[in-house]
Amino acid sequence: MGVAQAGAGDVSAPARPAEPLTIDVSVLPDAAFGHRGLTWWATVAFMAIEASTLLACLGALVYLRTNTTQWPPAPYAPPDVAPFAANVVLLLGKLWPFGRAEAAAKRLDEAGVRRWMLIGTLWGLVCVVLRGFELAALDVRWDDDAYGSAVWAVSVAHTSLLVTDLLESAAITAIFFLTHPQPRHFSDVEDSALYERFLSISWAVLAAALVLAPRLP
């Protein structure tokens, strides 16, 4: 690319000094997908922040476990597996509509984005409802003891992300239904698909720590 050459400092310019060469960027696109765009990087940065938060909660849980021989400490039993398994499956499944929405966004297919974002958002709503059952299945209160505090910290930290994410996908969906979306909104769809992956996979890890780890011998 001509621009790249100028950038690399080896401009073989016709030597008429003091007259600046110009790089005309008006021909460049005015939006870009994926890692080319700014919001993708912001999404990654916020994922790093949130991953640190979740790991801090998980770290607290693991650390507290080293204080007791029995985990969970008496009289508690490990949380029921069923709601957690169901929601992990559901959350991973949610990646499918979001993947479709992402593909539609890349084609700038408005109708496709509307359809799949709507499905993804409703799907997300089901996950949030199911999260209520998961919290109930913890079967300990946050103020019972440190074990209760730690499992609630892990769950609430992830739940707050889940709820904000639901609101965000609802907002993007609304923008596609109610306004004339601009190019950057298509790349927002792609970034939100990336974020969904983070949310779903992080819950698979955290849920395993909550329900499977205590069952390990």
Binding site: I49, D143, G148
Partner: peptide, 24 residues
């Protein structure tokens, strides 16, 4: 990124120990 995120989380744990009787 990783350091301030953790202190924010920790300070919330401290606040919760004081406000809603968690026991971290």
């Amino acid at each position: 990124l990783p350091s301030l995120a953790v202190i924010a989380t920790a300070s919330q744990m401290l606040a919760m120990d004081r406000l809603v009787d968690t026991h971290f």
